[in-house]
Write a protein that binds this DNA or RNA. Structure first.
Lengths: 345, 345
DNA sequence: CCCCATATACTCACATTGAGTATAAGTGAG
DNA sequence: CTCACTTATACTCAATGTGAGTATATGGGG
């Protein structure tokens, strides 16, 4: 990578930069986590990252960011290889499962970077890692996904912020619609996204919810993107903010994982080679953000042919020892859409 | 758009271009169709398109291409708006439903364009249009999707090309694997993709199948991309080829539609405001590429709350008149994942 | 008025799913 | 060494959904 600035000659990067972001997910201790690096923007030059915190409007602590790497036009054959390359280079991780998520290219997504004339495209990827491989390293930190998206974790019931904070703010937003037609649109959108007014909670609509909260001004990024200072504690915002639109990327990633879990055996990318059914269940629940009936979960994965017993047992359970299972990859041949369904599928 | 070349000054487009492609889908006469334009590459300058046919290695007739538009870094606020803009400009269509599909950025996807040193990124979008709005216009043509992907249409049973041509070629490819381990991998991949060896056909795996056929050399693009001449009739290839990797984009789009139909009411984007249940069924079948049980389909959409009767009837059925239905958007509030399931869900 | 075609209603066996109850097999306290 | 406790695993049952039919309704055209 001799030309780390994405496009054009070093002295004239041109109006358009392209880079790659990675949402690297692992589940440890029943929490879904992502790999973040502190501070830094997306100027395509990782080495200048450390001294750029001052460019954030806040002037305060740098925000968490997702790992970012520039795209070298003459570099690797595929975008995915580029991603794997710089992740290995900077974190030492060899990514396993990787899939492209979405390309973010709004004109004003660069506003936080102080140069509105330049457009930065970012191709976001989702990567899944096994918890055993997920050792923290250097400046990178594993952070709880639900620290950024606290309203998404329903494992211990409906989060209190929804009725206490989100619903009232949404109601205000609905009432301030210009006309009654758009008021009804807003009401429907809010109800579907957050499961209000007799609608069911749909775990997959993570991005809808984040974008709604952004519209309503309940996430800090809504202030930052307008060049306003970071709100102090008198202004209520939800979840830990991230740099640029990285939290939107995270929301996209979580929604994708939740959806895909249902029809492709992606959870196993997050599991060690052998695991108990409870461990598997906890990982699925951590991602889905809901609890499931234990006996039915067992029936689902065992009779569904997703796993097979190994004969070995794990005695560290605190009760009766549990058999260790492994993923049965033959299931891919047997079933059209093998996944781990959850309540309400 | 004063700077149609995507990146850098007009005289120095730089090593990286970014553009948008649209897979615009409509269903007419029980066939899914896409909007194509004849010939042309992706150099970011639409005006030069007409005289570029000679750059294709074939030297023959220009290949069908998907509509393409350059990204103006200083242009519209979002990528989607850019797409809507140039589609309106050039075809007169106001797109309704639009979603981002995938970003294609392999280094060698530009080989067909004659300049391997330049990398062209393309962000592909899926757009759905109602058949009534889908009037052909100018140089654009609506083409049957299954003309490009003939193995995907199972409505009249399993396509003969699968046992006659594809399976034997795949078997050769399996046998020529370097070692027995990769032989087994190939066998599994082929079986899953094409439903061989007791595996079920999975309609959603459209992209897997296209990529497999590409690997095996059964689609013309596999020759074109290596700079070889277009194979003559003595070499068997399947389906109508497209320029660059546009057929891969089409495969991505079809897979996405098929998957999404199952859990989001996207089909209605392709239907007129009022329709009979048989019309709806035909559209769903056209996209899914399979037939369904009529009575069960009715039960599914009617009892599932997806549609509601209007009282009006259509007497052009040839038998008993059919009631006209409309989409019931309230279903979005009532059900978490309202879609049109098909056999094997 | 009868035939034909399509629409629509209803039935039935079977699989899937949500929610329990019951039993098994470890650990550690006394 | 037995009991209380914990987790694992097996089994039951009602409700719902699904695949595949049969039966009936209602138009048009000879």
């Amino acid at each position: 990578m001799e030309n780390p600035d994405s496009v054009g000659a070093p002295n004239d990067p041109g109006p358009l930069s392209v880079g790659l972001n990675a949402v690297i997910v692992a589940v440890t201790e029943e929490r879904p986590r992502i790999l973040t690096v502190a501070g830094g923007g997306e100027d395509g030059d990782p080495d200048r990252r450390s001294d750029r915190g001052g460019e954030f409007p806040s002037g305060g602590a740098a925000l968490d960011t997702l790992p970012f790497g520039p795209l070298d036009p003459a570099g690797d054959r595929t975008l995915e290889l580029t991603l794997r390359g710089w992740v290995r280079e900077r974190t030492g991780f060899d990514l396993g499962y990787v899939e492209q998520l979405y390309t973010f290219g709004d004109r004003d997504r660069g506003l936080q970077q102080g140069d509105p004339s330049r457009r930065t495209l970012s191709i976001a990827y989702l990567a899944l890692m096994r918890e055993t491989e997920a050792e923290s390293s250097g400046a990178a930190a594993w952070r709880d996904v639900y620290g950024y998206l606290p309203w998404e974790d329903w494992r211990r019931g409906r989060p209190a912020v929804i009725p206490d904070l989100i619903a009232p703010h949404l109601e205000d937003w609905i009432q301030t619609a210009p006309d009654s037609r758009s008021r009804e649109e807003r009401r429907l959108r809010a109800a579907i996204a957050f499961g209000l007014e007799s609608a069911d909670w749909d775990g997959d609509r993570v991005l809808d919810r984040y974008e709604l909260l952004y519209s309503v001004g309940l996430v800090e990024e809504a202030f930052l993107d307008r060049g306003l200072p970071r709100p102090d504690s008198s202004t209520l915002t939800l979840g830990r903010p991230m740099a640029l639109d990285h939290r939107r990327m995270l929301a996209t990633a979580l929604g994708r994982i939740r959806g895909k879990t249902r029809y492709r055996p992606v959870v196993f990318e997050l599991m060690p080679a052998r695991f108990t059914l409870l461990q598997l269940q906890r990982v699925v629940e951590a991602l889905a953000g809901v609890q499931t009936h234990k006996q039915n979960f067992r029936r689902l994965v065992e009779r569904g042919g997703l796993v097979e017993g190994t004969g070995a047992v794990d005695s560290q359970t605190g009760g009766r020892p549990a058999e260790l299972f492994r993923f049965r990859k033959e299931v891919l041949r047997e079933r059209r859409a093998p996944g781990v369904g959850l309540p309400g599928t």
